[in-house]
């Protein structure tokens, strides 16, 4: 019988020194990643282990999208790795903007954010623009009620 991808038995996924590679050229801000994370891990309302921030570009008023990850609660899908599966967020991304890789294999141009607390330190961004960081409220980037950037579209 022909192979079906989800029936494959995989060896546990082992990454020594993981890094999340985020290709911002491909992110469309769709939230597939953060919803998959919450459903996979039963994350209650009001908490996020990772999420996508929408923010307004300073130059032309268009939107930019920035996936951010929590350093404590996000373990890059340890439960799934036991079954050889990629993290829920990576699996869900329809444009392959996310990938969990060995940090030493990262492209040279992939950089972490400079401001600590906005996301995990081992998240490496491709095509990141410095202004995006200044819009993140350090330490609160994951917080759902953080209204300093365009996201919930509620009153500030």
């Amino acid at each position: 019988m022909e192979d079906v991808p989800w029936e494959r038995r995989r060896a546990p996924r082992q990454i020594q020194d993981p890094a999340m590679l985020v290709d911002l050229r491909r992110c469309i801000g769709c939230h597939a990643c953060s919803v998959a994370c919450k459903v996979e891990h039963g994350v209650p309302l009001g908490e996020f282990r990772m999420r996508v921030r929408w923010m307004e570009r300073p130059d032309d008023g268009r939107m930019a999208f920035l996936p951010v990850f929590d350093g404590e609660s996000c373990d890059y899908g340890r439960d799934r790795a036991r079954f050889g599966l990629e993290p829920a967020c990576v699996n869900a991304c329809p444009t392959r903007a996310l990938d969990l890789i060995e940090a030493k294999g990262a492209p040279a141009e992939a950089k972490p954010l400079e401001r600590p607390g906005s996301t995990r330190a081992d998240v490496l961004y491709l095509a990141h623009e410095p202004w995006q960081e200044t819009k993140l409220n350090a330490g609160a980037a994951l917080h759902p009620e953080d209204e300093d950037i365009l996201y919930e579209q509620g009153p500030r």
Binding site: V4, P5, W6, C30, H31, A32, S34, V35, A36, N91, A92, C93, P94, T95
Partner: peptide, 15 residues
């Protein structure tokens, strides 16, 4: 999760 055999989505899923 997305079905990688779907030729339209190519395995993608949305929010």
């Amino acid at each position: 999760e997305g079905n990688p055999l779907d030729p339209n989505t190519q395995g993608g899923i949305c929010g």
